[in-house]
Nucleic acid binder design. Structure first.
Length: 106
DNA sequence: CTCTTGACCCGAA
DNA sequence: CTTCGGGCCAAGA
């Protein structure tokens, strides 16, 4: 289990999130059996090598919000990608996780 | 060694 | 809806 480095485990799992769906940092951490490492999921994504293509945009925080300052370039890029794949945002910039949250299995 | 910094989370007001 | 407080832990200064 600990054979594979944390970052790689995160990238692999994130890679399984289907288009049009999102997962939270905490959810990813829990699925990896490390419920206390929610923030480190974010660090892993931040450390993604330029060559590695993964759907990092499908990871948001537990409230269904993008974890970047609202007017930042990063925020707009992530939101744009998600909207392109059909994810909807409320007026307050929130995603309804009941509708768009990823449930492994389902 | 201690302090600070985060793509976080959760419960209680 | 918001704010506050506490918890978490790796990495860098």
């Amino acid at each position: 289990m600990a054979q594979i480095p944390w970052n790689q485990r995160v990238w692999r799992l994130v890679n399984r999130i289907p288009e049009g769906r999102v997962a939270s940092y905490g959810q990813i951490a829990r699925l990896l059996g490390e419920p206390r490492k929610a923030r480190h999921v974010g660090y892993a994504l931040a450390a993604t090598p330029p060559g590695l293509i993964i759907p990092w945009q499908r990871v948001v925080n537990g409230q269904g919000r993008i974890s970047f300052p609202e007017h930042s370039e990063k925020y707009r890029r992530q939101r744009g990608k998600l909207e392109d794949e059909g994810v909807e945002f409320s007026e307050s910039g929130r995603i309804n996780l009941r509708l768009f949250g990823w449930q492994p299995e389902g």
